[in-house]
C-alpha cells in the first residue's frame, strides 16, 4: 500500500506516494535528494538526522514520512540562501569552528536553531543540556557550544554559566589574527 503525502519542505510544496514505513529521513534524502540530513545511528540517539517539523527539532529517523503529512519541514538546506549569506547559526559554527568532520553538523545546527527559538539567550549549561540529543564523535562539543552562544548574540567567553578558566580557549587559526 502507498499513501499520498504532501509535505512543505524548506518552503516548497512536495508530494509523493510513499509506503507508510518510509522514514522521514529517507523521504528527504532519497525522494527529494536533500542529502544534508545525515542518518547516523538510526536509533534515535545521535541526532545527526535532526530537522525541524513545524519549527521544532525532531529526529527524522524516528518519524514516518506519513506522519509529517500536511506539515512543514526545514532542513539544513533551507536555512541559508547561499554560502555567502549563511543563517546566523551555521555562520556561528563557521566562525567558532564548531565542527571537525562535519557529519553531526546539520543535526547540531538544526537542534541549535530549535533550542534558540525556545530559549533565545541560553546559558552555557542550557546549551549543553539543549544539545544532549546530538552526539559529536570528534568530541568537538566545546566549539559547538561556543558557536550556539555566539549565534544567540552572546560573547561565548562571557555568557552566563561560562567558565573560561575551566575550559579550553576558543579556536585559534594560529595566524595571530
Amino acid at each position: 500500500m502507498t499513501v499520498k503525502v504532501e509535505i512543505t519542505v524548506n518552503g516548497e510544496s512536495t508530494s509523493a506516494d510513499v509506503e507508510p514505513r518510509l522514514l522521514l529521513a529517507h523521504y528527504l534524502r532519497d525522494q527529494l535528494g536533500l542529502k544534508d540530513t545525515n542518518v547516523g545511528c538510526d536509533t534515535t540517539s545521535c541526532g545527526a538526522c535532526t530537522v525541524l517539523l513545524d519549527g521544532e527539532s525532531i529526529k527524522s529517523c524516528t518519524v514516518l514520512a506519513v506522519q509529517a503529512d500536511q506539515q512543514s519541514v526545514t532542513t539544513m538546506e533551507g536555512l541559508s540562501t547561499d554560502s555567502d549569506n549563511l543563517h546566523p547559526v551555521p555562520a556561528a559554527f563557521r566562525a567558532e569552528h564548531g565542527l571537525q568532520c562535519g557529519f553531526c553538523t546539520p543535526g547540531m545546527v538544526m537542534a541549535a536553531v530549535s533550542l534558540l527559538e525556545e530559549n533565545p539567550k541560553p546559558t552555557e549549561k542550557q546549551v549543553r543540556e539543549g544539545l544532549e540529543g546530538n552526539l559529536c564523535r570528534c568530541t568537538g562539543y566545546h566549539n559547538i557550544v561556543r558557536a550556539v552562544l555566539a549565534a544567540s548574540g552572546q560573547d561565548p567567553d562571557k555568557a552566563e554559566g561560562s567558565e573560561p578558566d575551566m575550559v579550553a580557549p576558543g579556536f585559534s587559526t594560529g595566524s595571530g589574527a
Partner: peptide, 9 residues
C-alpha cells in the same frame, strides 16, 4: 525524558 527532539514527539 530522552532529549529535546524526543520530547517534541
Amino acid at each position: 525524558v530522552g532529549d529535546p527532539q524526543v520530547r517534541h514527539r
